[in-house]
Simulated scan of single mutants.
Amino acid sequence: MKAIALIPGTTTVHLVERPEPTVTTSDEIKVRILRVGICGTDREEAAGGRARAPIGQTELIIGHEMFGQVVQIGQAVTRVKPGDYVVFTVRRGCTKCLPCSMNRSDMCLTGDYLERGIWGLDGYQAEYVVDKEQYIVRLPPELAAVGVLTEPLSVAEKAIDEVVRLQMARLPDAPAHPDWLYGRRCLVAGLGPIGLLAGLALRLRGAEVFGLDIVDEGSARPQWLVHIGGSYIDGRQVSPEKVNQIIGPMDLILEATGVPSLAFNLLDALAPNGVCVLTGIPGGDRPLQIAGAELIRRLVLNNQVMIGSVNASRDHFQMAVDDLMHAHLRWGDHVERLITHRYAYSDVTTALKQQPSDEIKTVIEWTT
Rank of each mutant, 00 (worst) to 15 (best):
A174G: 05
A156Q: 10
M168Y: 09
D179G: 11
V164G: 01
E157A: 15
A189D: 07
A198S: 13
A189R: 01
Q167L: 15
P175H: 06
M168R: 14
L197S: 03
P172D: 12
V163W: 01
P175M: 11
D179S: 13
P152S: 09
L196Q: 01
V188M: 04
G199S: 12
L166M: 14
M168H: 07
A176W: 08
K158H: 13
L153W: 05
L171M: 12
S154V: 06
P152D: 10
V188C: 03
E157P: 00
L197Y: 05
V164S: 08
P175D: 04
R165E: 15
V163S: 07
P152G: 11
A198G: 07
G195T: 10
R165Q: 14
E157I: 10
P152V: 06
Q167H: 13
L197M: 12
H177P: 00
S154C: 11
S154E: 04
A198M: 02
G192D: 07
I194K: 00
I194D: 00
L187I: 00
A198Y: 01
P175G: 10
G199K: 03
V163Q: 02
V155F: 08
W180R: 06
L197Q: 04
P193C: 09
A169P: 06
A169G: 13
G183H: 03
V163Y: 07
P193E: 07
L171D: 11
L197K: 06
R184K: 15
P172A: 14
Q167F: 03
R165I: 15
W180T: 01
L166C: 12
E162D: 14
A159C: 09
A176I: 02
L181H: 01
P172E: 11
A156M: 09
A156D: 07
L171R: 13
Q167R: 15
D161S: 15
G183Q: 07
Q167W: 09
G192R: 03
A156P: 03
R165M: 13
S154F: 07
L181V: 01
G199N: 10
P172F: 13
V164K: 02
G199T: 05
K158R: 15
A159N: 11
P175F: 08
L181Q: 02
M168E: 15
V188E: 03
L197F: 04
V188I: 12
L171W: 08
E157S: 14
R165A: 15
A198P: 01
C186H: 01
I194F: 03
L153A: 10
C186K: 03
R184T: 06
P193K: 01
P193M: 04
G190I: 00
V155P: 06
A198L: 06
G192S: 10
R184H: 03
A174F: 04
V188K: 00
G190M: 05
R170A: 09
S154D: 05
I160T: 08
